Simulated assay, not measured.
Amino acid sequence: MNSLKVISVLVVFSFMSCKEQPPQSELKQEKPKHYGPFFGVVPLDKPQLLAPELLASPATEYNGTFSPDGTQFYYTTDMPYTAYITFTEMQADSSWSDPRIAPFSGEYSDFDPLFSPDGNRVYFSSSRPKADNENSKIWYVERKDFGWSNPIRVVLTGEEDNEYYSSLTHSGNLYFNIWSKGDIYRAVPSDSAYTVEVLPESINAGGNKGDPFVDPDERYMIFRGYDDTLGRGDLYISFNMEGEWTTPENLGEPINSSSHEMCPWVSQDGKLFIFASDRLETPAEAKALDPIKKINGTHNSGKLNLYYMSTDFIEEMKEKHQAD
């Protein structure tokens, strides 16, 4: 009899436990890994992959730029024979949307998106009206109530020059590079046109220079170069000291590596540094029936990926220059 009572109690308890269990749809959902402005990342003193579950793929990703408030992120997805500007944006619940091709890209070869300091424009490089990677020019789209305007070309140089990587300052100066000449230029606005000038030899000496990110107040510039590198290509910094650019200095490890580093960018608040590197060459950890999205998010076969870290190194290097 006692055994029957025990069994009865267990059955009742089991029934009550099942009854009180909420439906699966009502269970607390785990927040997405990337949540809030700037993907919710906390910059560290060593490079980390930027939101790989969201951004990394078997394609090549580079040129990452956040809007000033950190709620939109634009970057380049490079494919054979063409490139697209891709974007993701923060949603109402602070999670991020799946990346899509930007509304002003997809038909031609477009790359190098960079937000203007006020966030109202995205400047980019494009070979339009040709769908290839040749003879690039600088274009921009302007923020409107309905989204982005149609692309507008910034007339800077001759038709034979291939312009890349436009960085805009608070004064309206536009920095860019001409790949075929291997030099970095500054375009100064005057009325409705620009006066274009090549940067001094202290910047452009040696091999090809490009991908110039210029601080909006023009206090420093970080760019890509190929002289005395740790690998295939490195990032360098030059400071504007009393109107003169200092001799560029290699950013060194852990930013530069034996691989290729390029496409630097710093957030408007000066705290987040983003760049591209192809240093990731570890084999994928995968097993049968794993979702391919998981593989895309953790492995990229040595293609360029987006990395982030703290900008503390900038002030440290500046202090060293001031002490010299």
Rank of each mutant, 00 (worst) to 15 (best):
S67M: 02
I101H: 06
Y62F: 15
S67L: 12
F111T: 04
P52V: 15
Q91V: 05
Q91P: 01
P80M: 05
Y74L: 01
G64V: 12
N63K: 04
D78N: 07
A102Y: 01
A83Q: 09
T71D: 13
D69A: 15
D98C: 00
T60H: 08
E89P: 02
D110V: 00
T65D: 10
E53S: 10
T77K: 14
A56P: 05
M79R: 14
S95L: 09
P52F: 11
D110W: 00
A102H: 09
S109E: 03
E61F: 09
A56M: 15
M79H: 07
S97T: 04
E107T: 02
T82V: 01
S94V: 00
T71M: 14
S94Q: 11
T86D: 06
S95Q: 02
S105L: 01
A51C: 02
P103R: 09
Q72V: 08
Q72E: 15
F87G: 04
A56I: 10
A51F: 02
G106C: 06
L54H: 05
Y74G: 03
L114S: 10
F73V: 13
D78I: 07
I85V: 02
I85Y: 03
A92L: 07
G70F: 03
G64W: 09
P58K: 14
T77I: 11
S67R: 14
M79Y: 06
D93V: 05
T77Q: 14
S105H: 09
N63A: 15
P58S: 11
Y81R: 13
E53H: 12
D69N: 15
P103W: 09
P80C: 07
W96M: 07
S97C: 05
E107Y: 05
T71I: 14
S95T: 04
Q91W: 01
S105G: 05
Y62A: 13
P52N: 08
Y62C: 08
A102P: 05
M90S: 09
P52R: 14
Y75L: 12
Y81K: 04
F115H: 08
T86F: 00
T88L: 01
G64E: 05
L114T: 08
F66E: 12
R100L: 02
A51N: 06
S67T: 14
G106K: 00
M79F: 15
N63S: 13
T60I: 13
A51P: 06
G64M: 14
L55T: 07
S57K: 14
D98N: 02
P99Y: 01
G70K: 10
M79N: 13
A83H: 07
I85F: 00
F66R: 01
P68T: 11
Q72M: 13
D78G: 08
T86S: 00
S94F: 00
E61V: 10
E53R: 15
Y81G: 08
S116R: 08
D110L: 10
P58H: 14
D69R: 12
E61M: 08
S95R: 08
Q91N: 07
Y81H: 08
Q91E: 11
D93K: 04
F115L: 08
P68N: 14
D93R: 01
I101V: 11
M90R: 10
L54N: 13
E61H: 06
L55D: 10
D98H: 06
P52A: 14
T88K: 03
F104G: 02
L55K: 03
D110S: 02
D112W: 02
P99R: 05
F73T: 01
D78V: 12
D98M: 04
S67G: 09
F111A: 08
D112H: 00
